[in-house]
Computed example of a mutant assay.
Amino acid sequence: MEFPPLPLFTEVELKSEIARVATFKKVPKGETLIRQGQYLKVLPIVVSGAIRVFQTFEDREILLYYVRANETCIMSLTACLFNNESASYAITDAPTQVLYIPSDYITDWQTRYPSWNKFILAAYRNRYDELLHEFTDAVFKKMDERVLDYLRNYRDTHSVHTIPISHQALALELGTTRVVISRILKSFELEGLIGLHRGSITLKKPF
């Protein structure tokens, strides 16, 4: 399988080491990459596609974040660095290309390659900023605004106008109930913003 280009990393020696020790895989949508409680020996880096990271608690899913192109999973990174069990699940949200880096190289490369160190630090910083944004939304935004934001972000990220998601799944994504989501979506439909179908939502123009 052809190895992917690595624009994030600038050092020739680093690229050579990655090509030597890493594993590259093309993974279909819906495949579980990491299970909660699993010990990890490799760090996944998304080349293309997206990974959905979540926790389960008493039969409920709690969405943590998405990992997209040129990003890695902070929960996986922490598990690798401290040899801990993974605190989350990771499932592909689309057909995804993943680069797996053996965990033994993570800290070694941080001291030897500035672009790798920048990548690791940026992963923590970006996830912190995203967490702060999500907290602000949860505290200060009404649920209908959060639903609009979610639908727009999905459209822009995946370049689609029909979103394959059920009312229950959307409720899990936003940490609310299906009844609340159904009421909000119905009001959007009456306003002509969306079309509701079984298992999907179509965004209409203008949206």
Rank of each mutant, 00 (worst) to 15 (best):
M1Q: 11
E2S: 12
P4W: 04
P5H: 05
P5G: 01
L6I: 09
E11I: 01
E11Q: 12
K15I: 09
E17F: 08
A19W: 05
R20V: 03
A22F: 05
K25R: 14
K29C: 12
G30H: 02
I34P: 04
R35I: 01
F54D: 00
Q55M: 13
E58C: 09
D59R: 15
R60T: 09
R60E: 12
R60K: 15
L63E: 07
L64A: 07
R68D: 06
N70F: 12
T72W: 04
C73N: 13
M75I: 09
M75A: 14
L77F: 11
L77W: 10
T78D: 07
A79D: 04
C80H: 03
L81I: 14
L81S: 09
F82G: 03
N83D: 13
N84C: 08
S86M: 09
A90I: 02
T96H: 01
T107L: 15
D108A: 11
T111G: 09
P114K: 07
F119T: 02
A123F: 08
Y124G: 03
R125G: 04
R127A: 05
Y128D: 14
Y128M: 13
E130Y: 13
L131D: 12
T136S: 14
M143R: 08
L148M: 12
D149Q: 13
Y150P: 05
L151W: 03
T157F: 08
T162E: 15
I163M: 03
I165A: 05
G175D: 00
G175Y: 02
T176R: 11
T177W: 11
V179S: 15
V180L: 12
S182G: 06
I184F: 07
L185H: 06
E191C: 09
G192S: 10
L193P: 03
L196G: 02
R198M: 08
G199R: 11
L203I: 14
L203G: 06
P206F: 08
